[in-house]
Computed example of a mutant assay.
Amino acid sequence: MRILVVGGTGLIGTHVVDVLRERDHVVTTVARTPRAGVDHVLDVETASVDDLRPLLAGQDGIVYGSRADEQRVLRKPILPVLRREIVDPVARAFTATRDAGVTRGVILGSYYTYVDRLRPQWRLADRHAYIRCRLEQAAQARAAAGPDLPVAVLELPFVFGRAGDRLPNWAGPLDRWARSGAPLLVPVGGTAAISARSVAEVAVDALEHARGTDIPVADENLTWHEMITRIAAAVGRPRRVTRLPAGAVRAGLRLGGVLQALGGKESGLAPDHLADVLLAELFIEPVTGRPLDPALRDTFAAPPPADQYPR
């Protein structure tokens, strides 16, 4: 098949390109910044349907891997900004995809849409602009694509790994914390984790089988205690990790929400509504069973630059 990979030089996109080529597919890459391996330089956040159609002509599939930072703090309201970054570009891309006769697509989405299905009583989409936009992204992409173009949404948890200088956007802060002398304090609860290579293999499988479903993926389920313990070991500073009482976590997050509100700001994940998520063991079953440790070691092999926040 011929596959267009949007974000093809990012952390996950690079691995998707590798797996596609290993399986003898023909790959075309799109990214906003010129660099080695980029076939077309285009900012998909502002590109029109007319800009995208020529890139999709003759393609069989598309992998849409551009991302947004859910932790970024902006002036209120943040929802229109996230819609411009997350929802609108995907709707345009899949309109162009349908017009070009492409037969299948994959979006690299978020684990939070899986959590929203798992725990509807938390009303995550009402409380967190980022999660609301991720749900809208999937819905609008599928509406634009139409019934004859299956679109799989990979619901990604913490993704570990490295692609050249590309790292997860959260790697820098966690790396510096683990290397510092600061105490390692974590909530109870836990999350799922996967390597960028595993994501790529699932994405290519979804393309090859023209899947059109939501696909939660994980290599391992980890408590926060287990994750930070392994990160500390990976950076060469193994030490005790202490679990915080749930009340302390809730109080700290409420304070964060108050401080944001006083400054007229907000983030994609509202801190005052985040405690339930952090304190629960939100695991994915089944897991792939692929080993996570090599990707974890790659992520924390050396301190990333202070400004390393790849897109």
Rank of each mutant, 00 (worst) to 15 (best):
D60I: 14
V277K: 05
P304E: 02
V73T: 14
L274Y: 09
T213H: 13
L52Q: 07
G65C: 12
L4M: 05
R92I: 12
L11P: 00
R53I: 14
G146M: 07
T223R: 05
L244S: 06
L167T: 12
F300L: 12
E226A: 14
E281N: 15
I86P: 08
V241L: 09
V30Q: 03
P305E: 07
R92G: 03
G8I: 08
G161S: 03
P80N: 07
Y111T: 08
L259G: 08
G257M: 03
I231W: 00
P120M: 12
V204A: 00
P183T: 09
R211D: 12
S180D: 07
Y111C: 09
G289K: 10
T288S: 15
P77Q: 03
A248K: 01
G161D: 02
A152H: 05
A57K: 11
V5D: 02
D116T: 15
W170V: 11
Y114I: 03
R35S: 14
V41S: 09
A96K: 10
G10V: 07
L108W: 09
E155A: 09
I107C: 08
A31P: 11
A306F: 00
G172H: 13
G181N: 11
I3G: 05
N169A: 15
L135K: 13
D293K: 00
D165T: 12
E201P: 00
V204P: 00
A246N: 10
L118K: 14
G236C: 08
R290E: 12
V159T: 12
L296G: 03
A144S: 11
A251W: 05
P183R: 03
L11G: 02
V90D: 00
I12T: 12
